[in-house]
Amino acid sequence: MKVLLLVFAIVAAVSAQTEPWCRCAAFVTYEYNEMMVYEAPQIIIDSCQDDAGQCKTACVTELNTLSNNGDLWLVQENGDTVGQSICSFLANYNINWIVNHRVYGYFEVCGGPWEYAEFASQQLLCCDAGEHDHCIVRE
């Protein structure tokens, strides 16, 4: 009986393990918090221990492809700009005004901490009543 329980425990432990994975997302950064505004589909990587570089590279490729290298004014297939998609997403959470915020890319390996992917939007993001708008930068 003990052997049978040991076999079941080993089978359960092996089946509970999943493939190593990576998350990739874009965030708007505020002074004291971050708001995820886009999450890419999960990326399969080779290892949870050694593949932060693989995850980061795949994440930057995904975000660059989605936005033409961080261009918030890129018009997507649905007719909205990348920035409008972000403004609409934020408006769903009653965040209707954003002034002069950059959008940054981050990645996460196998549930670890989010790390900066060295991706940033080309322009600052401004949303006026949920509508993507040109930013006026005052110095």
Rank of each mutant, 00 (worst) to 15 (best):
R138Y: 07
P20L: 09
V99M: 06
P20T: 05
N92G: 15
Q123C: 01
K56H: 04
Q54C: 02
Q49W: 05
M36N: 13
K2G: 13
N69A: 12
E19L: 09
F107N: 03
G112N: 11
E34L: 01
N68W: 02
M1V: 08
L90S: 02
N100Y: 06
A52C: 05
L124E: 08
Q76L: 14
T18Y: 06
C126N: 12
W73H: 13
I136M: 14
P41Y: 04
R138N: 09
N96L: 14
N100G: 08
L74R: 15
I45H: 07
Y32W: 08
Q42G: 03
M35I: 12
E39P: 00
C127I: 01
V3D: 15
V109T: 13
H132A: 10
I86Q: 02
Q17A: 14
W73E: 11
K2N: 13
E115L: 12
C87W: 04
R138C: 03
M36E: 12
D80P: 02
S67Y: 02
E139V: 05
M36V: 12
A91F: 00
A25Q: 05
Q122N: 12
T65K: 12
W97N: 15
G130Y: 10
A25E: 05
H132V: 03
S47W: 07
A52P: 00
A13C: 09
S88P: 00
C126Q: 08
W114H: 06
Y32N: 07
A129G: 10
T61Q: 15
D133Q: 15
A52G: 05
A9D: 10
I44Y: 11
S47V: 04
F119W: 15
Q84D: 09
Q84E: 15
I86A: 02
Q123T: 08
C59A: 06
E139I: 07
V14W: 10
P20I: 06
Y38V: 09
D128V: 03
C87Q: 09
F27K: 06
L90M: 14
Q76H: 01
T57E: 13
Y32T: 08
L74N: 11
L124T: 10
Q42K: 14
E108G: 00
C22L: 07
E31T: 13
A16I: 09
K56Y: 00
N96A: 08
V137M: 14
F119T: 06
Y38F: 15
L63W: 01
C127Y: 03
T29I: 07
Q42L: 13
K56C: 01
D133N: 15
I136S: 12
I10K: 06
A16P: 02
Q76D: 10
I44M: 13
L125P: 01
K56A: 10
L4E: 14
Y32G: 01
G83I: 03
N96K: 11
V103Q: 03
A13P: 00
G111K: 12
V137P: 02
Y106L: 06
G130K: 10
G105C: 04
E131Q: 11
Q42T: 15
N78G: 02
V99R: 15
S15I: 10
R138F: 07
E39K: 10
L6P: 00
H101P: 03
D80T: 13
E118P: 00
V82T: 05
Q123N: 14
A16M: 11
C135M: 11
E131S: 09
